[in-house]
Amino acid sequence: MYEISDNKQLAPGYNLLKINAPLVAARIEPGQFVVLRIDERGERIPMTVCDYDREEGIISMVVHAVGKTTKRLSILKPGEKILNVAGPLGVPSAIKKYGHVAGVCRQGTAAALYPIMRAMKEEGNRVTVVIGAKSRREIIFEEEMRAFCDRVIIKTDDGSAGSRGYAVHGLTELLKEDRADLVMAIGPTTMMKTASKIAIAHGAKVLVSLGAIMLDGTGMCGACRVTVGRKTRFACVQGPEFDGSLVDFDELKRRQRMYLKAEKISLQAFEREKETETQKTDR
């Protein structure tokens, strides 16, 4: 059992969850993830770890409450426990001296980008981060990024913070005036696809972190398979980071939709259950 040590909302639908998992905390590196399960009937889902405290044995992650499991995670209270946390999984980010590293993310994925950019900075790179969001309210990790980034660019769909536009627009504007050696893109698959194109057009290397559907997370099922450079790769053990210029993003997008119907059924059943519960306690 793994105890929740903290859970706070950062923005509507986004929570920062801290879990006591000493073995994972001792070994995890930027870019890696865990696979967790809430209880006996729960599903196994991958979660990127955005921060860790090796001494306290605590790992942090940002939960975007979209499905049943993530909704349940986001309402856990400190002191409550979840059944399984396995990790660290995946290959750590290739932290090296590149020169200028430009990070691109959208809303919650800023959390996944954060430890990588921080390590890039510590490695002696100049780092710029572009954060995109629907509006001001959905921006998270801005302060954390500003604490070490050479520059942070904010883009919102409605212009309520930074300048109006998507993160990828911000990336184009940046690369036009300030060449990057590496673009690190983490976010929705479409965004990573576009960011990769932009990076290539500006002569930068590009790495993306793929959100493939996963099950075991140790290479035993192939649910997470992605096509990279015309070859099938398992995102859980060979990724999740890959060269964005080689990834078949369209295939990934399609595979991510494989269980949409089931996810809806699951969520509806959960919400019905919750409703009857609150009705009971109201009475």
Binding site: E43, K68, L215, C221, R225, R255, A262, S266
Partner: peptide, 30 residues
């Protein structure tokens, strides 16, 4: 081979057996 609805034997059994997908949505794994 990477089209949707193509499973490895392991993934199929892992979902059904280990995660009890045959009892979805009582169990969460589809």
């Amino acid at each position: 081979e990477n089209l949707n609805q193509i499973y490895s034997g392991n993934e199929f059994l892992f979902r059904i057996n280990f995660m009890k997908a045959y009892m979805f949505p009582e169990y969460d794994t589809p």
